[in-house]
């Protein structure tokens, strides 16, 4: 059932970002030709008036900002409107368990954030004139991989960092979900109470993280082996995420009140 839910959440995501993602990439590409890059092969662009370059740069940053705002709205709206608003009348009458509803929204939101990040990175990459053939022929890509292998230890460390980043994104989303779920427990002013809950959750999580960090710092095991440190953080974030996930699911299963 989770796969079926994901199918519709991903469709919803695509409908919302179908314009902004390609638009940001196109604007990034346009900037490549409107900015006066001092690179061989693009000297013709030196004739482009500065005002055009400024306009396209502003457009790119406006596009990135719009994408960021849209991402935030998507995270909040798909959970609040989709599960706690009118659309909840459909979603909560489907023969699925509440945790599947939350998991589907969470997975979709994290994937959306990763794609948005990738689109922003790609737009920047497109903006700069890169000689792709030279990149591959001269083995720059190989050098990058060799650099990563030398500096990051091995691929496992790279994967650990990716896992950490995904956890950070999931925690951001889950904090929003848990806050909206707490707001739903109130009869009135649910949006305002959700905002208050978010602030409180954020303060609690920040302080807990700081305290645990201070306690862990002097421990010898973390100093000797950074791998242990990384896995400790991964575990900590997983526990925190599980707690937030359980909280949001508990409200939907035991305290749902679609009035």
């Amino acid at each position: 059932m989770l796969w079926k839910l994901l199918k519709y959440d991903f469709r919803s995501m695509w409908k919302q970002f179908a314009v902004v993602w390609p638009a940001v990439l196109v604007i990034g590409l346009v900037n490549r030709f409107t900015l006066p890059w001092e690179v061989t092969g693009s000297s013709a662009m030196a004739n482009v008036p500065g005002a055009v370059g400024v306009t396209t740069v502003i457009l790119l940053f406006a596009g990135l900002l719009a994408m960021g705002v849209l991402a935030l709205v998507f995270i909040l709206q798909r959970f609040y409107k989709g599960l706690l608003g009118d659309e909840g009348y459909l979603m909560h009458t489907l023969p699925v368990k509440p945790w599947q509803l939350v998991a589907s929204k969470l997975i979709c939101a994290v994937v959306m954030l990763i794609i948005s990040g990738a689109v922003a990175f790609l737009a920047m990459l497109l903006m700069v004139p890169v000689d792709w053939s030279a990149l591959f022929q001269e083995g720059i890509l190989g050098n990058v991989i060799r650099w990563a292998a030398t500096n990051l230890g091995d691929v496992a460390v790279l994967l650990e960092i990716v896992l950490l980043l995904v956890e950070v994104l999931a925690l951001m989303v889950l904090t929003c979900y848990a806050a909206m779920a707490v707001g739903h427990l109130f009869q009135r002013h649910r949006v305002a109470m959700s905002v208050v809950a978010f602030v409180v959750l954020d303060i609690v999580i920040s302080n807990l993280t700081a305290i645990l960090g201070r306690l862990a710092a002097p421990l010898e095991i973390f100093a000797v082996n950074s791998q242990v440190g990384i896995w400790a953080v991964i575990l900590y974030q997983a526990v925190l995420g599980a707690a937030l996930f359980a909280g949001a699911t508990l409200v939907l299963s035991r305290r749902l009140n679609l009035e």
Binding site: H92, R255, L256, E259
Partner: peptide, 9 residues
Amino acid sequence: IKILCGLIQ
């Protein structure tokens, strides 16, 4: 009706 549907507890 909402209780029977599971929309309120």
